[in-house]
């Protein structure tokens, strides 16, 4: 199993529903977030291009955060989901320094917190909170090892890119362009 997410920049309107849904689902404290929206504008009026991306932890195939964690609090679970064990995290910040996507942050209680691909929902066969709420349905979550999963099909039929591939982390959030 290899979980991944495809994010369709052609459909996203940047409403940030994914951000709020994640916050209410995962008790993310006010002032913090596990996912966020980036907007890129290119061109000169009126020849313009706009790209909006909903970004989060890339659950990298080669996760530098897991590698640098001194206690094993950052670890990989079934499907390649990168997680942090609250009780093992000492709050050293090594993983935050190691992440090229800046996807991690210190929870106000001190431990490092991040997107979990809603593994508690996925385990029950549900979509992640952000995917299930997205009004434009621009987010697709699924198993890349299953060639018939919607996410596999999308990556086969559409052009895509990943963020900062040069960081060499094998990111698993794909942006359809």
């Amino acid at each position: 199993m290899r979980y991944a997410m495809a994010m369709d920049t052609k459909k996203c309107v940047g409403c940030s529903d994914c951000v709020v849904a994640c916050q209410t689902e995962n008790n993310v404290p006010h002032g913090y977030c596990r996912d966020w929206i980036v907007e890129n504008v290119d061109g000169t009026y009126p020849e313009l291009h706009l790209e909006i991306r909903s970004e989060r932890c890339n659950h990298c195939g080669d996760a530098p955060c897991v590698r640098t964690c001194p206690t094993g609090a950052s670890h990989i679970i079934e499907g390649g989901i990168v997680k942090v064990t609250h009780d093992e995290c000492i709050g050293c910040g090594a993983c935050i320094q190691a992440c090229p996507y800046e996807a991690r942050y210190f929870h106000p209680e001190g431990y490092v917190d991040k997107c979990t691909f809603c593994d508690h929902r996925v385990a029950k066969g549900q979509d992640t909170a952000c995917v299930s709420v997205c009004p434009t349905r621009c987010l697709t979550f699924g198993d890349l090892d299953d060639p018939n999963s919607p996410v596999s099909k999308l990556l086969k039929s559409r052009k895509w890119k990943v963020n900062a591939p040069e960081a060499g982390t094998k990111p698993q959030v794909y942006f359809l362009i």
Binding site: V19, W36, E39, N40, V41, D42, I96, Y105
Partner: peptide, 21 residues
């Protein structure tokens, strides 16, 4: 002109502008 900005999420004091920890 090229523009890149956070629509939401990251432009909050505890997360950004830079993860300077």
């Amino acid at each position: 002109m090229k523009e890149e900005l956070f629509v939401s999420g990251r432009n909050i004091p505890n997360i950004d502008p830079v993860l300077h920890i």
